[in-house]
Design a protein around this nucleic acid. Sequence first.
RNA 1: GUGAGUGUCGCCUAGCGGUCUAAGGCGCCAGGUUGUGGCCCUGGAGAACGAGGGUUCAAAUCCCUCCACUCACCCCA
Length: 415
Amino acid sequence: MYRAPRGTSDILPQEQAYWRYIDKKIVDLCQLYGYERIDAPAFEDTGLFLRTVGEETDIVEKQMYTFKDRGGNKLTLRPEGTAPVCRAYLEHGLHNLPQPVKLYYIASIFRYERPQAGRYRQHYQFGYEAIGDDDPALDAEVIDMAWQFFLSLNLHHLSLQLNSTGCKKCRPRYLTELKDYYSDHTQELCSDCRARLKRNPLRLLDCKKPSCQQLANSAPKSIDYLCPQCDEHFNRLKRYLSLLDLPFAVNPRLVRGLDYYTRTVFEVQPEAEGAQSALGGGGRYDDLIEELGGKPTPALGFAAGIERIILNLKQQGVPIPPLPQPQVFIAYIGDQARDGAVKLASALRRAGIGVSEAISGKSLKAQLRQANSLGARYTVIIGEQEVTNNTVILRDMTTAQQKTIPLPQLERELQ
RNA sequence: GUGAGUGUCGCCUAGCGGUCUAAGGCGCCAGGUUGUGGCCCUGGAGAACGAGGGUUCAAAUCCCUCCACUCACCCCA
């Protein structure tokens, strides 16, 4: 028997209410904030991700689904959503539109990892990008939108963490400080962190080992090394966030896993302890578009994992509205009535009334059972007698009341 | 890549060396008189117990290997 590949899953009808619920919130939210939808292909030239995500990141080093097509092109299933959007922005000359350009997506994301709770090889992300403006007011809007998104989903007990990692002018100086600090403490570091020190020192800050955390707590903070421009940007952002009453907490150890982030980074996490805690995160990437061959173009964005949202919705017991079902079930007895049932079902549907029916001849009892388990509001029953009289029995399933009415009247009764 | 746990009908679970060609609940199907649901009752279909090998007179029950799943680490959404 075939099974879904490791780390992938089927989203069965019983789960769809969650997905539709979230979809709806996303569409409403984006409309509210003026974001338009974009759908990029599921795979891109491998180089796009190598270039933007960072060669030293785990994503590039071990998590990409990369393959060659028959023409010999090296392609990669998208491991994140931002780079494709930026590629599309450049490819279609969206810099000619009024800036910032605001785009959102809901897309499958592929990463080769060992699956566990809230982590899959194929998962879905909702993300949005605001490209073409460096004003901290835009950062505030992006963060506000993320926060409002989770509120609108009815998720509670979340925290909003904020940090600034500086720009390419001031970050090198900070990194030097950081390395200097850690170099004096190499013996106290875990083996992983010793490797990080050489390759990606920022990552030292979010090691979970207690001993490393202690070191990280007293490590130099990026916000203390910001250049005047970055510092002002960060201060204005914090002011805007306070203005908007967003409950953010500055976390000097907040670091993100992709190399392209500059200045603002933020993350939304559940307060409850747990493993894959990040529900969503984002930040600024002011150099990314230029890196891809465009003019220097400041931008920022956010992305959230849908599966993780659903996990939290379930944990918090958030009620989800059920998906609508057909209101009418048609039951019939005998072959003659069957013709009428087939015709009637189609007629009602053409009139915009949802209909389910028993396709093959079961007993009336079985058909009513089916109507009941489908949750039909009404059952229409057609037997031989009804066929001859051109009538129909209309049964209200909640009250168990039924009446015989002329067939031509049925549509009006149901509307 | 590393570590731990689990693997019995579609789902949940019992069985832990012989009474198991495997039991129960949910779900599914059919009946409970003639054309009527949700409750109740009765019956039925459905698993050779993840796969392979071994130990034993005897294995779902013990051992080994493999596979799969789950959780955690790394990292991230």
